[in-house]
Amino acid sequence: MENKKTVLVIGAGPAGISAAKSLANDNISVTVLEKEDTFGGNINNWAKLFPNFKDAGEVKSSLIQNFVNNQNIKIVYNKKVTELKKHNQKWIANTSDGEVFESDAAILSTGFKVFDAQYKEELGYGIYPNVITSVEFEKMYKNGKILTVQGSVPKKIAFLNCVGSRDEKVGNHYCSRICCIAAVKQAIEFKELYPQSEAFIFYMDIRMAGQFYEELYRKSQEKHGVVYIRGRISETSSTIDKKVQIKAEDTLAATPLRMTVDMLVLMIGVEASKSTTILSKQNNIDGPYGFAKSKDIHTADNYSNENGLFLAGSCKRPLTLTETIADGKSAAISVVEYLKQTK
């Protein structure tokens, strides 16, 4: 009987799931190591997805078809990979609880983490309870209500883009790519829930590069009356009735602006996950900002400079979910090519 090739997939987010399924279809034996007790990664944080407001749960259900009960896929939960190294043409993964996994190739699909908004001290996250993050907004929306900490419907809500992205102060010069459209989506969701309330989006540039994004941006203004203000917020504080006072500059009107809102949502950016950074460094494939570096961004984006170690999804850079799923499949194709060569 022919020995089946084995591949380790580190991380059971959309990229890892997508890659594992494709590999399994090619009759490759896949072991997926997931540090959490469930699969899905960051998709679990979303209620609905841009640009079509599709239920994130439905997308996840569709994604995991032929993943969970696939005889070629073994999913191991609560396994945090602390070391990944190549030894005698095999990839060895050591986990935090002392287990060792071995394979012919490995895929890094360790994804991203969201920016910790507490680093933007001036925005008061963690100090003023009505300053929340986009992830927290999404959780509230999942439960059907967006309410202030006092339990009331916000009459005015503001969204601030680029929190932890394109920001020299926190050392992240890059654009996280998904926050602009996520703010548009969340503002529309808010207005659909509470049409009488007002929604403002503070931005530097509105980057609507995906399909149907621009249309959604237009719709948010024309249909829902979302107001866009070009300028970053420089300071927040709490009023005596626990509202959030915002100071910003309206750079189109060329004037400073002070506004009080009931809730401020910080559109937190994408950063390399801790595992991405650690495992990339161990294998000398660490790129800027702690992300993993691909061999060639144009022609070998799923390859790393380490033979047999592949990259999938947002461990490389911020990607949308659509791109991430496609990238997982693409990584699987690269792995198959590699395994054929190493027969």
Partner: peptide
């Protein structure tokens, strides 16, 4: 100083 010496600090909107 204020808190150590028994006072209460006011966090008002234009504090900074």
């Amino acid at each position: 100083m204020i808190e150590e010496w028994g006072g209460e600090v006011i966090d008002y909107p234009e504090r900074r």
